[in-house]
């Protein structure tokens, strides 16, 4: 996948804006003041989970070797190619829930009518026109980011290198004494 959602856990304040934005972007009207009275209610595809004093927004990781695709008996779960998001074809889905059980992150859900499964589509409609996924765009602290994986890794490397350098410098002062 070219781009992926990464979360900087320290920045997440658990405001759940991403949850609201997710439900909203998957609503019929896509307008908050309208969506709140839609029926069935718009459904969110990600959840902010508490983890000690931190909180982490959890959604589909779009695994490269996706177990949900493997177990789906009707091939309702699919992807257009390598690096593409894992999608669900609601017409094919029989609601057997194999994918729910096999997902290691527990981020696949049942639709409100119970007839199919609902999952993150990585906001395909938005990313097609160059926009970030709705959850990322809604994050007020920038804890969620939609980044090129190679760029994210490079940034992580640079950060680790800076830390190592700082530690070394500190230690050398100690040794110098």
């Amino acid at each position: 996948m070219a781009e992926t959602i990464i979360v900087e856990v320290r920045k997440c304040l658990a405001c759940r804006s991403c949850e609201v934005a997710c439900a909203l972007v998957h609503s019929r009207s896509k307008v908050l003041s309208e969506a709140v009275s839609e029926s069935p209610k718009p459904q969110r595809m990600l959840t902010v989970e508490a983890s000690g004093q931190f909180a982490v927004p959890m959604q589909c990781r779009h695994c490269e070797d996706a177990p949900c695709i493997k177990v789906c008996p009707t091939s309702a779960l699919y992807r257009h190619g390598p690096n593409a998001p894992v999608l669900i074809c609601r017409e094919k889905c029989i609601g057997c829930k194999y994918c729910l059980l096999t997902c290691p992150f527990g981020v696949i859900d049942i639709t409100r009518d119970g007839r199919a499964v609902a999952k993150c589509d990585l906001c395909l409609e938005r990313t097609k026109v160059g926009e970030e996924p709705a959850c990322v765009a809604a994050c007020p602290t920038g804890a969620m980011q939609f980044v090129e994986l190679t760029e994210a890794l490079a940034e992580r490397r640079r950060m680790a290198a800076r830390q190592a350098g700082a530690t070394a410098a500190e230690k050398s002062v100690v040794y110098g004494e």
């Binding site: 405001c15 804006s17 609201v20 908050l32 003041s33």
Partner: peptide, 9 residues
Amino acid sequence: QPQCGFGRL
């Protein structure tokens, strides 16, 4: 932007 959906409702 974005302004909180909980507050807006």
